[in-house]
């Protein structure tokens, strides 16, 4: 007699977390170092979560000298085992990254309809150097992308608040986080980590209940 193990998936429902990270030349130095360390810390925090009701999958899209998946969307344990730090060089082609993000969100072979709503995090320290307006409009008009929980952080005075504000749109807890010093990057990632893990521990991980950013001493 057939058993349910023979026709069911083995994995928990995925909860995708996609990071859009600025790896342009202006991020060189402390900023990229702390960004890498913050991502690593977030991955470890995700992996150490127990009593969860979703499998956290993490992917990283970088935009700098190249645009693409620095880390494909995979279960967090796999991401940790194959993680390599980002390096900073090149311009800030955010428009291309937004297009890749939209195409990936719309592709159900990458994010299945079985998945919970994704969390998307944009971190940048400068103004986009390509055409970003059209890709941003298309992203926000995409039914799947518009449902995602979106966070954005601008690093330093050169970060473009208009771009970051548009990205988060009317999403829950829609405030652009600002880091006037590199150390704030880590706090921002801890906040995102808390938001995601709160969802995975809840009875319904689709309910987006952000952690309170005031607990994390941010500048707004």
């Amino acid at each position: 007699m057939t058993k349910p193990e023979e026709f069911t998936v083995s994995e928990a429902r995925p909860l995708p977390v996609i990071l859009l990270l600025d790896s342009s030349g202006s991020m060189e130095g402390d900023k990229i170092s702390i960004l890498n360390a913050s991502v690593r810390e977030m991955l470890q925090s995700f992996a150490s979560e127990d009593d969860i009701s979703a499998a956290i999958h993490v992917g990283v899209i970088q935009f700098g000298r190249t645009v693409g998946w620095h880390q494909p969307l995979l279960p967090v344990e796999d991401v940790i085992s194959q993680w390599s730090d980002l390096t900073a060089s090149g311009k800030t082609p955010l428009g291309q990254a937004l297009t890749l993000l939209r195409e990936s969100l719309d592709d159900r072979s990458i994010i299945s309809s079985r998945a919970y709503k994704p969390t998307i995090v944009l971190v940048s320290d400068g103004k986009p150097t390509d055409d970003w307006g059209g890709p941003m409009t298309e992203l926000l008009a995409s039914p799947r992308a518009s449902k995602a929980s979106r966070f954005a952080m601008g690093i330093g005075a050169d970060a473009d608040p208009v771009v970051l504000s548009q990205f988060i749109g009317a999403a829950a807890a829609s405030r652009v986080f600002e880091a006037h010093e590199a150390g704030r990057i880590q706090k921002f990632f801890r906040f995102v980590t808390m938001s995601v893990t709160t969802r995975t521990r809840s009875g319904n991980p689709n309910e987006i209940v952000p952690a309170d950013p005031d607990d994390y001493d941010f500048d707004y």
Binding site: M1, T2, T8, V9, R13, N204
Partner: peptide, 28 residues
């Protein structure tokens, strides 16, 4: 599997047992 359950004396109970032991990790 469902059709094979139908031949049991108590197919509803068999379904309940299977659903309560659902093999998918972290299902909710």
């Amino acid at each position: 599997w469902v059709r094979s359950t139908a031949v049991l004396k108590h197919p509803g109970r068999a379904l309940r047992r299977a659903l309560e032991r659902w093999p998918v990790k972290s299902h909710t």
